[in-house]
């Protein structure tokens, strides 16, 4: 288990209700409504906790007839804490992880369900958003301006600003009215 995964798991476990859920799941697999009944919480609150536990890799789910059943990922809890502590930290990898975490945070703030909510004022953040939009363009393909606008419009109505900024940031290249993704 890498450091980031361990931190995510420990953070997730630092909650009494989630520990209670795991205590129930260690006995047998259960569905949300049953857990809700046992713990005196609403099914919605249980779903909320289950999402966090699943994201942290602590539980997994599967369909059983009409129910979504949850089960404990035993192998995660077999990991020795001492092994996690002993694992050497790789500075380059950590740096990359920090960058990736920052990138994720920016994308989460500015994107909602795949649409750009607003164009970031800060250049560094805008670049991250532009790079995300650029993922919709194929490498080694030449696009007409109309096509570029249509693709960008899926993310934000102001395709002119975004298209222009992609050029000035060197993310896209323009030759006349034809565009391609920078290599």
């Amino acid at each position: 288990m890498i450091e980031a995964e361990a931190i995510r798991l420990f953070k997730c476990l630092a909650d009494k209700s989630r520990l209670q859920i795991l205590k129930n799941l260690v006995q047998e697999d259960m569905y949300a409504e049953r857990l809700a009944e046992r713990l005196g919480l609403t099914a919605a609150t249980i779903s909320f906790h289950m999402k966090k536990l699943e994201d942290a890799g602590a539980v997994t789910s599967y369909k059983d007839q009409y129910y979504t059943m949850y089960s404990l990922r035993q192998e995660i809890f077999m990991t020795n804490i001492i092994d996690i502590i002993k694992e050497e930290s790789d500075e380059a990898r950590e740096q990359k992880q920090r960058e990736e975490a920052y990138r994720k945070k920016v994308l989460m703030s500015f994107f909602e369900y795949g649409r750009l909510k607003s164009i970031p004022a800060q250049r560094k953040k805008e670049r991250i958003c532009l790079e995300e939009i650029a993922k919709s363009f194929e490498a080694d393909r030449v696009y007409e301006e109309k096509e570029v606008n249509e693709i960008i419009e899926r993310f934000h109505a102001d395709f002119c600003t975004i298209r222009r900024d992609m050029i000035s940031e060197g993310i896209m290249e323009r030759e006349g009215m034809r565009y391609s993704k920078s290599k």
Partner: peptide, 10 residues
């Protein structure tokens, strides 16, 4: 106080 932060947020 009962370490149920997410529920306290709700």
């Amino acid at each position: 106080a009962a370490d149920r932060k997410d529920e306290s947020n709700l």
